[in-house]
Simulated assay, not measured.
Amino acid sequence: MIPSKVKVAGIEYQVKEVEGNLEKFNNLGQINYFKGIIEIDDSMAADRKEQTFVHELLHACFKEAGFDEQDEDMIDRVSAILYQVMKDNQLHFGKTIIETDSGMKMTMNY
């Protein structure tokens, strides 16, 4: 499940699934650092959405760590492996509180 928001180095990013707008630019997702928004194309399968979220999250991590210039190929490779490791090993750290679009908060234990 992709959260509706995520914090990276104290900066909150809203996560939005958007309708097909990204596909015309051949993007599965994109990040706007200035606005704090991660967008994921909602037409993909769930696994692809999650993998794309991890990819965009890595961009946010690198940006907040001070890496303004990022190698897209490296982010793509590392995010694919990180996603696989997280998913295959069901990694989580404690409880996760997820806020839905309607504002309802849920505690998830994976």
Rank of each mutant, 00 (worst) to 15 (best):
A46F: 09
H59L: 06
I38S: 05
A65S: 14
R48L: 14
G36E: 02
E50N: 13
I37A: 04
F67Y: 15
K35A: 01
L57N: 02
M44Y: 14
Q51M: 13
I38Q: 05
F67R: 10
S43R: 15
A65R: 05
H55R: 06
H59A: 08
D42G: 10
K35G: 00
A60M: 06
F67M: 09
E50K: 15
E64S: 11
R48Y: 12
E50Q: 13
A46Y: 11
E69I: 12
G66V: 09
E69A: 12
A65I: 04
F67Q: 09
L57E: 00
T52W: 01
R48F: 08
C61V: 14
H55D: 03
K63F: 14
H59W: 11
S43E: 13
T52I: 04
H55K: 07
H59Q: 09
E64H: 09
R48V: 14
K35Y: 02
D68C: 10
S43D: 13
C61W: 06
A60N: 07
S43V: 06
E64V: 09
D42Y: 07
V54P: 01
F53H: 04
G66N: 09
F53Y: 14
D47V: 00
A65C: 08
L57Y: 11
H59N: 06
I37G: 03
A45E: 15
V54R: 00
V54C: 04
D68V: 12
T52G: 00
D42I: 03
V54I: 12
E39W: 07
K49Q: 10
H59V: 05
Q51C: 08
H55S: 02
A60R: 10
D68W: 13
H55Y: 04
A46W: 07
D68E: 15
I38E: 03
M44K: 14
E56D: 05
F53A: 05
D68L: 15
D47L: 02
H59S: 03
M44F: 14
E64L: 08
G66C: 09
K35I: 00
I37V: 15
V54T: 08
D41C: 11
E64K: 12
E69R: 14
F67A: 07
A65W: 09
D42M: 12
I40F: 00
L58A: 00
K49N: 11
L58E: 01
E69C: 07
F67S: 08
I40R: 01
L57R: 02
S43L: 10
S43I: 12
F62Y: 13
F67L: 09
D47P: 04
F62T: 03
S43Y: 13
